[in-house]
Write a protein that binds this DNA or RNA. Structure first.
Lengths: 199, 199
DNA sequence: CAAAGGTCGAACCGATCGGTACGAACTCGG
DNA sequence: CCGAGTTCGTACCGATCGGTTCGACCTTTG
């Protein structure tokens, strides 16, 4: 509660706090599942403040999706990096991190994919596409460092496993989805044709 | 236009025609992206008729999702079956069929997943779960006939590839998503430990 | 202390929402 | 030909939608 009533202590602070607070609400209720009035009430902010900072409900949605995409991608990248230098270990750690996410009781699938599924508007879909770009870059890097002859194709296949595991965990059964995907990913990594040159 | 004005020629016909006509509209616009009035207008039916047959907008949505799930699953199963008796050929044919779907300009991802992402209501999520069940059964059958030692795990991994390919095709790049997924699927099938016994 | 500006809370706007009601038009089985 | 059943078109309902406005309150700046 950094903003009791009125203040100009730091407008940027208010904006950041709003995005922080609104993330779980929009994630749980869905973009169209909550109105602006209730949304503002739940994050303890007036409508005027919302429209001052974000211009519209969609503006807030887009800002929070962008922030969330960067955060979750960084989280996965760090989980992979913390596993050491072996690309196989990095890949395994990445899927372990995913399983950890699936085990969270509030897990409801990928927020960006959920958003893109309901909002057919362009900005949201563009954010989702960039989100998949980030994932793809991360996975392609692992594939390249593992010496895959065609890291782009392997990276894309790994991306499908990541997204597929997330879908299955969200809509079917979260138990062991990450483990099964990890096993499949390592199999693909092992079976991929490789070049002699690794960087 | 099987129903010009008033008639009792066949109430069931009206119901079936409605579900047929409403499918592409809801798929393209999204469940909450179109109101009941416009929805009825676009399928050439009055609101009274809609509520007579389905009780509510959600009722119509659920009926059409269920029908679509069965139809698309059957379509994939038939594509696989038409490829012959070799499980590898069946799996390849299934992903070829998926690529064919992705190439359709109106392709917007899996309707059931899209619906579940926006409607947090239980009935829709249950339909989506059943939809994944159908896919899983199809893929597990292929895995079993291929002699996989653990067809349930392999089937689940293949399910992740199917769903992941669909997500990537819908939200990132539809080109070659099915081909890349097919290649990965065949790799998993080849690499899977197998029992000596095949039925 | 005064001006400037961020915030709140509530009132308010037109539009649209899902759903209901009803009379008229129509097709059927008897 | 007559009543039962279906459908259409439209008007209508209360609720909610996203968004705007405004006066009061508060904090910072000078």
């Amino acid at each position: 509660m950094p903003v009791p009533k009125g203040s100009t202590i730091d407008p940027e602070r208010t904006r950041a706090a709003m995005m922080e607070a609104v993330t779980p609400v929009l994630y749980e209720r869905g973009l169209d599942g909550i109105g602006v009035a209730e949304l503002c009430a739940s994050i303890g902010v007036s409508k005027e403040t919302l429209y001052r900072h974000f211009g519209s409900k969609d503006g807030l949605v887009e800002a929070m999706l962008e922030a969330r995409s960067e955060r979750v991608t960084s989280w996965l990248a760090e989980a992979a990096a913390a596993a050491g230098d072996d690309p196989r270990d990095q890949l395994a750690a990445l899927f372990d991190a995913l399983q950890q996410w699936y085990d969270d009781p509030v897990f409801r699938g990928c927020a960006m994919l959920n958003a893109a599924a309901q909002h057919h508007v362009d900005p949201v879909r563009a954010i989702t596409a960039r989100h998949l770009d980030r994932y793809l870059e991360l996975l392609t890097g692992i594939a390249r460092r593992a010496g895959a002859a065609d890291p782009h194709v392997l990276g894309r296949q790994l991306l499908m496993l990541v997204e597929g595991a997330t879908v299955v965990a969200a809509h079917h059964d979260p138990a062991a989805a990450g483990e099964h995907a990890r096993q499949a990913a390592l199999t693909l990594l092992s079976a991929a044709p490789r070049t002699g040159l690794q960087d």
